[in-house]
Design a protein around this nucleic acid. Structure first.
Length: 802
RNA sequence: GCAGAUAUGGCGGAACUGGUAGACGCACAGGACUUAAAAUCCUGCGGACUAAUAAUCCGUCCCGGUUCGAUUCCGGGUAUCUGCACCA
């Protein structure tokens, strides 16, 4: 009987001792760099979801080694983050200690599954030798003007009196104490990702990401084309600028709206007749949290700004200006022209407040719906646009007019906003900046990096949403690196996204203390050839790291425009009840239990077999037994093995087919069908009660990336002294993937009626004769008129009768 | 509301470029081995009608279309999941 425990330990020890899977420094070999998202070492240990992604790329990595590539398949830990800090607050244990413990636990778990990671390049984002370079990159961003201070709202818990991360705000209340969370203004570091918006869209054309991932990136960046239009304020020289994607509907603009935070109010307060009412509305809006604003989206609110009118520049009509929180200060110009006839939000608002609704696009007769008409149609009530029924053309005409008259211009806008980079937290990279009364913000000199996180004992966030570091008076006090005067350090830390925005680069040269990676290493290993991770990281993490990479490219530090050549994603693993695994639902599966009971190979094979790799799949304790049984049967093939240096006639085509199928499946991540191919093969060999040595060897090699331990063991028992891990990947002969005899289905009027055996590539006439000689078919076509006969060679034969 | 995805037996799922729907696995049923159980091995397993492993019919979310032939392509709809959400 197969003893997986003994065998798996034996090989894992050997691999560790020999450094079998460490990437080589031979830069003349073809390279392959496979990347999985490095885990956050949580106290709960590895989730069964992690190994799904790791096994998948492990299979690819192992196949690449067999194909002669120098493979880099690294691992590390993204160890800054909230859970460790919250644990520290509760239990007064330094996050460093819990992080170390958790990492040790994770390593044991990962090693027990037999991944072919290069452990010699292990990284940890909380290691000062690592975050030194995270800080260094920040300083470069600052030097290029891409990092700046701005006043931005933070989530502030009214109960705990501390700033909260977005994850800690659940349904608008504090996750810990349940008190309401409000927005509080605070000066914070920002990164100008918006400067890269267009390139982050354009360069997607050059990479091989799944379409849905590209779509998500584009969606998040949210590019839109339109125009900025100036509306004159009656009786002044001033005007109000709006952004619109529908300049074609300008004739239908019947009022304007400014966001509550818009400075228009302050500027024109002398003219406003109902200033008190307007101010009251502004205050009320400021009190609302983001959550409330979006939650209360049913009923629109607003106040007319009395005493001021705007002029629609295209028809010189006088229109009112309103203030409402359905207009966002953060997008466009913070003010809009409202076209209630053709915009749902404006329509709703206009209906509620009795404002004019002038249609400028004819609604098709068959459209019986009420409300705003947002579709295409013939222009009406629009002077020089009347009669045009092409949206693009109308937009062009209007923009040309606006530009000619100097009242507007073509404009592209993005939903993407600059990245709020400050966190009022302890367990993160300190932002290496010093504030000097005279010199302003000055970066810590590069030779002084890393700026180490001070050891502290009180992890409670400071009052008013300050970072816990704000209480470290000794640490804060410093000299200005520029003028030498007394100065103070920044006390905010970086978000968890920081360390993961560039970690793949560090793997290329993990122990370099002069640079984040040497030029040679970067040139050899870049870009990452294949990056797999969860869908939950395909927007922010991917976008942030692409942004940092492009920046590093611009300053000449990396050789490629894009960090990742290919990006795929895996589906989530759900609990047995089909729900997301969670402690509260009691459906969490611990990988340790699985490895102990069934072994690492069974675990790996099951995770690949459970369903299509990119789709969610529920866990099943019963199904994994089948995979374990399958491996036992693979082991037992040793008992029926016979000699043979070539494939036997009996199994030749099956072997060639299998090599073809598995080779292709791995590239397409169709691991589940590869596993069923293996199972079918074992069934065939078992049924025949024999397998020859050559067939067994090929089979083991194909299976090795999936189940590395058992296959290495059998390989050794077959008398080999080398390791399967570096044997050449098997090849196949296309001609031999076809059977000599084909079981040809015959249809009559598209319905299957019989099967006949034909020789492969038999001539059409031969096949026709055979078909017409078939007794069963005769009975169907007897006395009927044959209209047509279709023969798809080696595939199917269809007779159409009347 | 917007974007993306999914829908096939009791269950997870398979099906090349439009060509035998249900591979492979699980569960279940029957049998062999055993004092017995577990493990293992063998057989069956979409539904209807059947004595039948004879024949026939139905069947891939629903309605319609293209085709000799549709799970696959086209049009329309329903349901579920995921992400974003007043982005003008």
């Amino acid at each position: 009987m197969y003893n997986f425990k003994e065998v798996e330990e034996k090989w894992q020890k050997k691999w560790e001792k020999d450094g079998t899977f460490n990437a080589k420094d031979d830069y003349t070999m073809p390279k392959w760099f496979g990347l999985i998202e490095f885990p956050y070492p949580s106290g709960q240990g590895l989730h069964v979801g992690h190994p799904r992604s790791y096994t998948a790329l492990d299979i690819v990595a192992r196949k690449r080694r067999m194909q002669g590539y120098n493979v880099l398949y690294p691992i590390g830990f993204d160890a800054f983050g909230l859970p460790a800090e919250n644990y520290a607050i509760k239990n007064h244990i330094h996050p460093k200690i819990t992080t170390e413990q958790n990492i040790a636990h994770f390593k044991n778990q990962l090693k027990s599954i037999g991944f072919s990671f290069d452990w010699s390049r292990e990284i940890n984002t909380t290691d000062p030798d690592y975050y030194k370079w995270t800080q260094w990159i920040f300083i470069q961003l600052f030097k290029k003007g891409l990092a700046y201070k701005a006043t931005m709202p933070i989530n502030f818990c009214t109960g705990c009196k501390v700033g909260l991360a977005n994850e800690e705000v659940v349904n608008g209340v504090c996750e810990r104490c349940g008190s309401p969370v409000v927005q509080k203004e605070k000066s914070q570091w920002m990164l100008k990702i918006t400067e890269y918006a267009q390139r982050l869209i354009d360069d997607l054309d050059d990479v091989d990401f799944l379409d849905k991932i590209k779509a998500q990136q584009k969606n998040w960046i949210g590019r839109s084309e339109g125009a900025d239009v100036k509306f004159k304020i009656k009786g002044t020289d001033d005007s109000l600028l709006v952004y619109t994607t529908r300049p074609d509907t300008l004739f239908g603009a019947t009022y304007m709206v400014v966001a509550p935070e818009h400075d228009f109010i302050e500027k024109h307060k002398d003219m406003i007749e109902n200033l008190d009412e307007v101010k009251a509305y502004q205050e009320k809006a400021a009190m609302k949290s983001d959550f409330e604003r979006s939650e209360l989206n049913k009923e629109k609110t607003g106040v007319e700004i009395k005493g001021i009118k705007a002029i629609n520049p295209i028809n010189n009509k006088e229109i009112p200006i309103w203030i409402s929180d359905y207009v966002l200060i953060t997008y466009g110009t913070g003010a809009i022209m409202a076209v209630p006839a053709h915009d749902e939000r404006d329509y709703e608002f206009a209906k509620k407040f009795g404002l004019d609704i002038i249609p400028v696009i004819e609604r098709p007769a068959e459209d019986q719906t009420e409300g705003a008409y947002t579709g295409d149609g013939i222009m009406i009530n629009s002077d020089f646009l009347n009669g045009i029924d092409n949206k693009k053309e109308s937009i062009e005409k209007v923009i040309n007019y606006l530009e000619k008259e100097g009242i507007g211009e073509r404009k592209v806008n993005y939903k993407l906003r600059d990245w709020v980079f400050s966190r009022q937290r302890y367990w993160g990279e300190p932002i290496p900046m010093v504030y000097c009364e005279d010199c302003g913000w000055v970066p810590v000199p590069e030779e002084e990096l890393p700026l180490k996180l001070p050891e502290i004992e009180d992890y409670e966030p400071g009052e008013n949403g300050e970072s816990p570091l704000a209480k470290q008076t000794d640490w804060i006090k410093t000299k200005c690196p520029h003028c030498g005067k007394d100065a103070r350090r920044e006390t905010d830390t970086m978000p968890q996204w920081a360390g993961s925005s560039w970690y793949y680069l560090r793997y290329m040269d993990a122990h370099n203390d002069k640079e984040f990676a040497s030029k040679e290493a970067l040139e050899y290993w870049s870009p990452v050839d294949w990056y797999n991770g969860g869908m939950e990281h395909t927007t922010l993490h991917l976008l942030y790291s692409r942004f940092w990479h492009k920046f590093l490219y611009d300053i000449g530090k990396v050789p490629t425009k894009e960090p990742y050549q290919k990006r795929t994603s895996h589906g989530m693993i759900l609990g047995e009840n089909g729900e997301k695994m969670s402690k509260s639902k009691g459906n969490v599966v611990n990988p340790d239990d699985i490895v102990r009971e069934f072994g690492a190979d069974s675990f790996r094979v099951y995770e690949m077999f459970m369903g299509p790799f990119d789709q969610t799949a529920p866990w099943s304790m019963e199904s994994i037994r089948g995979c374990s049984k399958f491996l036992d049967r693979v082991w037992c093939l040793q008992d029926i093995m016979v000699d043979g240096d070539e494939y036997s006639k009996e199994f030749e085509s099956m072997m060639h087919k299998a090599v073809k199928k598995v080779s292709k499946d791995i590239e397409e991540m169709k691991f589940n069908t590869s596993v069923s191919t293996f199972m079918t093969m074992v069934n065939e060999f078992t049924k025949a009660k024999k397998i020859n040595k050559k067939e067994y060897e090929t089979f083991l090699q194909l299976l090795n990336p999936f189940a590395p331990h058992i296959t290495e063991e059998i390989w050794q028992r077959l008398g080999h002294t080398d390791e399967l891990a570096y044997r050449k990947w098997p090849e196949y002969d296309e001609a031999k993937t076809l059977d000599e005899m084909i079981d040809l289905p015959i249809q009559v009027n598209g319905k299957l009626r019989a099967n006949i055996d034909i020789m492969k590539d038999a001539s059409n006439d031969e096949v026709k004769t055979q078909v017409h000689n078939c007794e069963k078919i005769k009975s169907y076509i007897e006395g009927k008129e044959i209209v047509k006969e279709i023969y798809v060679p080696n595939r199917i034969y269809n007779i159409v009768i009347k």
